[in-house]
């Protein structure tokens, strides 16, 4: 796991219908230490997904730099694992094949891949579903596959783009608890994009609030771990931090 830094990151694009230039992201600088969990929140259109897409290398950067472990990023690469809101699992591959897709691309042999599949499916509690196809799984199970598929490729940084936004509320809470457990076990460097304030506070070490393409404020979350909803839902500190972040987002 490596650190990630954004240096004066900007994104401008031309809107051919409006005939104007739009500044989606302006001069965003952010340092994420190795093994840190940072959540990025903000209202719709604040540029949070655009930032993630630039870090992932999916869209060109208009200004500034993205550095992973001190090395500048050019285009998508296996050093940055991505978890998508739409899961983006390969429908024609079984769960095990999805999880070992990254290692397969690196040329890891079959026997070794079977071991990797076993390890990461156990981590996600999906050992029984190894040979099923994604469409045979529930949304929550599909996203568990999405998370361990990214992890199984040993990325330096894990990028998560509203990964739990399309599952039901109960499943979402379970997935959040599982993600904190996995994070505590493995300590990956994580950037987690969400519009859900409680989710951001629950998961992260630090919450970054965005507003109109700028960093409005950063809030440190020093809640003890391991975290679980049973304990935190009535916790005074959790409520206080959530309220603070919520006020910031609403003022954004």
């Amino acid at each position: 796991m490596k650190n990630l830094s954004l240096e004066n990151l900007s994104k401008t694009y031309f809107d051919p219908y409006a005939g104007t230039t739009v500044n989606a992201v302006q001069d965003v600088s952010l340092n994420v230490a190795a093994g840190e969990f940072v959540a990025v929140v903000g209202p719709s259109g604040c540029g949070k997904t655009t930032i993630l897409n630039m870090i992932a290398g999916f869209v060109p950067i208009s200004g500034g730099r993205v550095l992973v472990g001190g090395k500048e990023v050019k285009g998508p690469g296996p050093d940055r694992g991505v978890v998508f809101q739409s899961f983006a699992l390969f429908p024609w591959k079984t769960v095990a094949e999805n999880v070992t897709f990254g290692p397969k691309m690196r040329g890891v042999g079959k026997a070794e891949r079977a071991k990797i599949a076993e390890e990461y499916l156990a981590l996600a509690g999906l050992s029984h579903a190894a040979d099923r196809y994604p469409n045979e799984l529930s949304g929550g199970m599909q996203q568990r596959v999405g998370v361990v598929r990214a992890l199984a490729n040993n990325p330096d940084v894990l990028l998560m783009d509203e990964p739990f936004a399309s599952v039901d509320a109960q499943t979402r809470m379970t997935l959040q608890e599982e993600l904190t457990r996995i994070w505590e076990e493995r300590r990956p460097t994580v950037i987690f994009i969400t519009h859900d304030v409680a989710e951001a506070v629950f998961l992260a070490n630090r919450v970054v609030v965005l507003s109109k393409g700028n960093v409005l404020e950063e809030v440190d979350i020093d809640l003890p771990r391991p975290r679980s909803w049973d304990r935190l839902v009535e916790d005074g500190d959790f409520k206080g931090l959530s309220n603070k972040v919520l006020q910031l987002v609403r003022s954004a």
Binding site: G81, V82, F90, F101
Partner: peptide
């Protein structure tokens, strides 16, 4: 083809050729 599947494959280290055979063609099947 769904663009996010291609993105997922790129982020997992797949080359252009591998994406064609592992993602684009099965999707078009």
């Amino acid at each position: 083809a769904r663009p996010e599947l291609e993105r997922a494959a790129q982020s997992l280290g797949a080359s252009r050729t591998r994406i064609l055979f592992e993602v684009t063609l099965p999707g078009a099947l």
